[in-house]
Design a protein around this nucleic acid. Structure first.
Lengths: 147, 147
DNA sequence: TGTTGACCTTGCCATAGGGTTAAGGTCGAT
DNA sequence: ATCGACCTTAACCCTATGGCAAGGTCAACA
């Protein structure tokens, strides 16, 4: 099976699969005489695993560790649990951060008339740093790619 | 005042200030005979505004719009409120997404013994996509820069 | 005067997670 | 022989920022 078919079956894109191979997340796929990558059932299974781990918000680095554990029949489930637990902690940290931002901003918005006059507590709040400013710079939360 | 001092006073870094200038977020700073940028009180005020808007999680693009509104004495506060409201919506969307991921993952973790045996519902869950998979790919949430 | 160190300049590389496009090779079918 | 659909690598785009390098400037000190 070629990369296009593997992409469709796994829910990834061909680009992603090549990228994952290039960063060593995947062992290089076998190649035909024409240079095309080919994938068997086991490869598909692995791609699907990666896809779902990504869906759960694991970074590629974490996915790599999960893959290693997945393929290690001697693994201790405690290791997996620790990895997942660390990810949950990270998610909780980000959630708390975003909630803090939202609440601060919501407070400003609630005090803004939102009419055609220029007076605006939101701008004043940003200008003067009045409201409970988040303790530190929020971690970089990138805008979604484009949709 | 040179860029280093302006950076310290605003809480940004010199690098950020140059970057903001390069992308047109800031009008180019004045230069001395030696080519050094210099900043006055008004500039500092603007830098501080940007810094606090970033702290509230606005993207640089949004900060640009906020700056324009801030400097427009004819603005309608409704425009500011709309911008802030859209940002709150975006924050809420991201929060809901992260909460969904966390809950799914937490459920898997709760079912894992976490001992030295290899049996692991977490890996099984990822493998089979058993648990309520998030409806779509989570938006890319980058890891924090480095700390 | 010479040197040292702190500061400034520009510019390139890197990050995550790809999207998009380009230039070209391969394949099956007509 | 040619066409479209597929594949290959490569390269540049995005966010927002850190890091590093090579070189110019400046103030202070011997």
């Amino acid at each position: 099976m070629n990369i296009g078919q593997a992409a469709k079956h796994s829910g990834l894109t061909a680009k992603m699969i090549r990228y994952y191979e290039s960063i060593g997340l995947l062992t290089p796929a076998g190649r035909g005489a024409n240079g095309y990558r080919h994938y068997n059932e086991r490869d598909l299974h692995q791609l699907a695993f990666i896809r779902r781990a990504r869906d759960l918000g694991f970074s590629l680095e974490e996915v790599g560790k999960l893959l290693a554990l997945w393929q290690d029949r001697q693994r201790a489930s405690a290791d997996v649990k620790a990895l997942a637990g660390a990810h949950i902690d990270e998610l909780n940290r980000k959630i708390a951060e975003l909630v803090g931002l939202r609440d601060t901003l919501q407070e400003l918005v609630d005090h803004c008339q939102g009419d055609d006059r220029p007076d605006c507590p939101i701008l004043q709040g940003i200008e003067s740093g009045c409201c409970s400013a988040p303790s530190s710079r929020p971690s970089p939360i990138t805008a979604p790619g484009k949709g």
